[in-house]
Design a protein around this nucleic acid. Structure first.
Lengths: 220, 220
DNA sequence: ATATTTGTTTTACAGTCGTACAACAGCGAA
DNA sequence: TTCGCTGTTGTACGACTGTAAAACAAATAT
């Protein structure tokens, strides 16, 4: 019986390989069929190694959720961070980024939904979810405030937070349905729909946000 | 070995008992731990009986998803169906119904998310999801149109559909985060937040929808 | 070159999974 | 009451699960 050849990788590399293999399996097969052997195979590794990096398979899946959310919130925080833009352009970019690749992705939404299904069951999932949600809420609030000030509307913190909650809901909902690709409408309409609705929610004049759409298209 | 006593139930009753036990298990344990034996026990039945009502356990889970979505869309279609109301009140009721019991429910959101996670994997789930989404979209569109007409805004079908998509996104997103109960804000604020945002999306004057809030509270 | 460390593979095991199927029993018909 | 039908139970089985632990080998230090 000849043993399989292997090479030793850095701890971080092996760990993220395992986490990404976990996400890939969960997205393609579902949580129930994402077995330890399947995941190990996708990571190019044998099943026993999992327990060398994680106390249990469940713990690895939890870590994979945290890893995914970390990626997603980092991507969100990067969008609209160009300092030279107007507040309106920055907000429009944050919103529109959710409806373009790589955010608008069937894989991402599948993973997100699968894990959200565990939030009620497992407190660790609830913590990860709450943290990600809170961060995005804060980001939106920070982007909304200067826009309201520039446009001369009421901009007290309580109103900003309320608008952030509503805007986050809008983005989440449109992102989910858009990413699932049900074919009921063209997903390319989503940025315009989202920005138009956001103008309404924030009581901004029409085209305040949507006029930044053309730029987005040219850049990609 | 004495056999367990049992009584024969009607086919429909037994079937829905199994479906509800399936949903209960999936909500409490997650898809992977919702085994045939667990489900059967909750239905007050032995595991072998499952295959007498469904060709396989997977098929039963699919049927449970269809059953859940059927309940939810039926509940949505019942809300705001009183003929004597103004169009504005009817729309407000449809929106607000999502943020009160029994719609606003951690169990429901957990199930919804868990199943949505399978949409990309299994075409049967995709069909069920698309159908439910389409129905709610149509319902919203039908409720939006008379409001726009009454308020004198543009009400062409294309605009109505676009607004329905945005409104559905808003409702979905707020419903999810609200039902998960992360404790970042009081979920009782959601009806007001949703109606206020809807007024903005539809470009209606303030309080067009929110003024129907007090009535809702008194009734319940 | 040799020894040491430890990341990795392999094997083994107890438990659980979905399911096939034979035996049983509740219930209506005769 | 007895029969026949079939909804329901109980059991057995092979496949698969996560995991423990021993055997091994790749990289590093000496």
């Amino acid at each position: 019986m000849t043993r399989r050849a292997y090479s030793r990788l850095s701890q971080d590399r092996r760990r993220t390989d395992l986490l990404e293999a976990t996400l890939s399996c969960v997205a393609d097969l579902g949580l129930d069929r994402a077995g330890a052997r399947q995941i190990a195979e996708r990571a190019g590794v044998s099943a026993g190694l999992i327990r060398h990096y994680f106390p249990s398979k469940d713990e690895m899946v939890r870590a994979a959720y945290a890893y995914l959310m970390g990626q997603m919130t980092a991507a969100a925080e990067d969008s609209g961070a160009g300092d030279e833009q107007s507040p309106e352009a920055a907000l429009a970019e944050v919103i529109a980024a959710n409806f373009a690749s790589p955010s608008l992705s069937g894989v991402k939404v599948s993973l997100w939904a699968t894990f959200v299904g565990r939030v009620r069951v497992d407190p660790a999932y609830a913590d990860i979810h709450r943290e990600g949600y809170r961060e995005f809420l804060d980001l939106l609030e920070a982007r909304i405030h200067p826009v309201l000030v520039a446009q001369g509307g009421p901009a007290d913190p309580s109103r900003c937070k309320q608008l952030a909650i509503a805007l986050n809901g809008l983005i989440d909902g449109l992102w989910i349905e858009g990413s699932l690709g049900h074919g009921l409408y063209d997903a390319r309409r989503l940025p315009a729909i989202a920005l138009g609705a956001a103008e309404g929610i924030l009581r901004l004049p029409d085209t305040t946000l949507t006029r930044h759409l053309a730029l987005e298209d040219e850049r990609s």
